[in-house]
């Protein structure tokens, strides 16, 4: 009985390992094949999280150890918390330095916000935090202006919007 359970666990661990590695491969393929920085970001973030989860559970299963679970969970949670932040930072830097291909975008609602911010010059701390002493586009757009603009952007999400959903 324990022998068959052992075999099952081993098989599960094996499948987890292979699929986890497959996710790394997915990230690699995505990095190479997607057209611009922002879409490559998807490939770099999402499969990694699942891949690490599968690999860590394979380690826990293979070592048959419950004492290991907290530290493995911690490693995964750390990645869960850091991966979106680093993706956001890279994406933001990429967007602001124009590392994107316009023709791959169907809609770009941020474009006008940033354009207006440049026009109005340095403003309040409108967009996400930004170090002091910079000028130009690095600065967040003036708060009031964004309020006006984003109101237009998210028209579909206004008071009437979500009721439809």
């Amino acid at each position: 009985m324990t022998g068959s359970l052992d075999a099952v666990l081993q098989a599960v661990a094996g499948v987890c390992l292979v699929v986890g590695c497959l996710m790394s491969l997915a990230a690699g393929i995505g990095m190479l094949r997607f057209p611009d920085l922002l879409s490559r970001m998807h490939a770099a973030t999402k499969p990694q999280v699942l891949g690490l989860f599968l690999l860590l559970s394979a380690v826990a299963i293979e070592l048959r150890s419950w004492a290991l679970v907290p530290v493995l969970l911690l490693a995964w949670l750390l990645q869960l918390l850091t991966a979106p932040v680093s993706a956001h930072m890279v994406g933001r830097a990429g967007y602001r330095t124009k590392h994107l291909k316009r023709q791959t975008l169907l809609v770009d609602e941020l474009d006008q916000v940033v354009a207006r911010a440049v026009q109005d010059g340095p403003g309040r701390d409108g967009l996400a935090q930004e170090g002091p002493g910079q000028d130009g586009m690095g600065q967040g757009p003036a708060g009031q202006d964004v309020a006006g603009r984003t109101g237009g952007c998210s028209a579909g999400t206004g008071p009437a919007g979500p009721a439809a959903g």
Binding site: A13, L17, G20, C21, S24, A27, G28, M31, L37, R40, M41, A44, Q48, G51, L52, L55, L56, A58, V59, I61, E62, L63, S86, V90
Partner: peptide, 20 residues
């Protein structure tokens, strides 16, 4: 970004090593 992916591949290799 690619180096980040590479680091995660190294981590994956370590995990495989630990499991096997």
């Amino acid at each position: 970004l690619a180096l980040d992916v590479l680091l995660m591949i190294v981590v994956a290799a370590l995990c495989v090593d630990m499991a096997v």
